[in-house]
């Protein structure tokens, strides 16, 4: 199969959906001639024109409001927040407005809005451009939260997100836009709430999403040297979460390590650990372990930055602990 970059997979998904449905349009900062801060929309302005690739002023509240207002009047916008850190400037529109409108109006108004954004550390862009804030949105009823790790997943899930009748927080990771992976030429979509086992294993389940999938796969490869067969479980969508598949994996392996780049307090990882402890306690051979970022604003200095997020070694050590070696 051909291999394409993660950002190219995003571009393909958007092109396919825009060609299929004239109601789909893109709106955000620097998405016009510039093609988006990570160039995922390269060339789209020329292809679709200014009416469907709307390059906005720096007005995050209005970018989400614009998406929502168009969504409740029959369009399928993709609003872009250049960094998830900037969602702070649009929180009323995301949390109080878009997330609530369908339920609050008794299904009278539907809001098929995708909010594309990206987060994560590793790029030396310090505390206001490196956060992992998915837990904020994971917490709010009315939002779906998608965090794809691979080019294949990002394409299939973005197409599903655009077709969904609800608000989808579509969170990418800035360190994987250039990663290549197999993506079929033929059209496909990936349903929400269906996890993907990125690597099969029998001794321990490693729950990881977004960039942490790669670190977990590296860890799983190293763990082979210790005779440990680790399963890497990628939920792909945090809301809805494929709990059944996760429980099934834990029942098979008897052990769980949950990995997140975000700091642990109030994190998705804590919640997943709690869910499994509550629902599959009898199948656990050891307590669930969490590998998370440190409780710190992300520092600029590379050494400090790298020390603030999980790495292969942290995951390997956590797995060894739950394996009792």
């Amino acid at each position: 199969m051909r291999e394409i970059e993660y950002r190219e997979a995003i571009r393909e998904a958007v092109i396919e959906e825009m060609n299929m449905d004239p109601k789909v349009f893109l709106i955000g900062e620097d998405i016009g001639k510039y093609g988006g801060a990570f160039r995922a929309y390269k060339g789209l302005l020329d292809m679709y024109g200014e009416d469907r690739v709307i390059n906005t002023p720096i007005s995050e509240g209005a970018i989400i409001g614009a998406g929502m207002g168009a969504a409740i009047t029959g369009y399928r916008p993709v609003s872009e927040l250049m960094f998830i850190d900037f969602s702070t400037l649009a929180m009323d529109q995301i949390v109080n407005q878009a997330a609530k409108i369908r339920y609050m109006t008794g299904d009278n108004l539907r809001c098929p809005l995708v909010i594309r954004t990206q987060g994560g550390a590793g790029r030396g862009v310090a505390a206001q451009h490196s956060q992992s804030l998915e837990a904020w949105f994971y917490h709010v009823p009315g939002l779906k939260v998608v965090m794809p790790a691979t080019p294949y997943d990002v394409k299939g899930l973005l197409k599903t997100a655009i077709r969904d009748d609800n608000v989808v927080m579509f969170i990418e990771h800035k360190m994987i836009y250039l990663l290549k992976g197999p993506v079929p030429e033929e059209e496909y979509t990936i349903p929400f709430g269906v996890a993907d086992i990125k690597r099969q294993g029998t001794d321990v389940t490693i729950f990881a999403y977004s960039n942490m999938v790669y670190k977990s796969l590296e860890a799983a490869a190293e763990l082979e040297n210790y005779g440990i067969s680790a399963e890497v479980f990628d939920p792909r969508t945090l809301v809805p979460l494929d709990e059944d598949a996760l429980i099934a994996s834990v029942k098979k392996t008897g052990r769980l390590v949950v990995v997140t780049e975000a700091c642990e307090r109030g994190s998705v990882a804590s919640d997943v650990a709690a869910k499994v402890s509550l629902k599959a306690f009898d199948w656990l051979d050891s307590p669930v372990k969490i590998v998370a970022g440190l409780n710190t604003p992300i520092p600029y200095n590379s050494t400090l930055e790298q020390a603030s997020i999980p790495h292969k070694a942290d995951i390997v050590n956590a797995v060894k602990e739950v394996m009792g070696i």
């Binding site: 349009f25 614009a66 929502m68 207002g69 369009y75 529109q93």
Partner: peptide, 11 residues
Amino acid sequence: IPISVGAGFSC
């Protein structure tokens, strides 16, 4: 108020 921008785009 921000929602008006989207309704406006729609119109």
